[in-house]
């Protein structure tokens, strides 16, 4: 039933003037800061693990942050709130943000941060090929999910909403 790539139907014209309480908070400066703080805390926590090398702690930091981004922004669809008769029901948080507008400041920020983390980590550690591939794949996944070209596009039937798979 699922093909490799599918596009989620555009269910409604998302109203620019209504605030979506599910995605509104992402634009707050506090949540930008939280991203940075989280990365620092991750790095600190993973570095106090006994016998941990910089490579290990950076890899864990990178993977945790990418996993966090994947779950938060691309892994869960819908909204716990009743907005516009379920207009957002089949959309991920990334697609809901800024009512589907692309290249907004928050989107730019959240796209750049994992890359910066990755670059810093390669700089401060000596990755061998395996760890480099693991880290690079992780950020590649979160980056591809963010590309405007993949707005409402689903791979392997992941996150297909209702009414889209028949």
């Amino acid at each position: 039933m699922h093909t490799l790539v599918q596009r989620v139907a555009s269910v409604a014209n998302l109203n620019e003037h209504s605030i979506n309480p599910n995605s509104h908070w992402v634009n707050l400066k506090g949540s930008w800061t939280t991203n940075i703080v989280m990365i620092v805390v991750f790095r600190f926590l993973f570095s106090v693990i006994p016998w941990s090398t910089p490579e290990l702690s950076w890899t864990l930091t990178n993977l945790s942050y990418c996993l966090f981004q994947y779950i938060m922004f691309h892994g869960i669809i819908g909204t716990p709130f009743e907005v516009n008769q379920g207009a957002y029901d089949n959309l991920t948080l990334w697609e809901q943000m800024d009512n589907g507008e692309q290249y907004t400041p928050t989107k730019k920020f959240l796209t750049v941060v994992p890359i910066i983390v990755f670059l810093i980590s390669t700089h401060y550690s000596n990755y061998d090929v395996a760890t480099f591939i693991i880290n690079f794949t992780a950020i590649l996944i979160v980056l591809i999910a963010k590309l405007p070209a993949f707005h409402r596009v689903r791979f392997f039937g992941i996150n297909m909403g209702q009414n889209d798979c028949n």
Binding site: S10, G100, E101, Q102, Y103, T104, K108, V112, F118, P148
Partner: peptide, 29 residues
């Protein structure tokens, strides 16, 4: 780190950052 391919990938990422940041806002749909 004596690995041009790795450096190349990183350059790509940086190029991506620059490309992404300089893009204008637009609305799909």
């Amino acid at each position: 780190k004596d690995d041009p391919f790795r450096t190349f990938l990183e350059v790509c990422l940086i190029a991506f950052i620059i490309w992404y940041i300089t893009k204008q806002k637009y609305n799909i749909g």
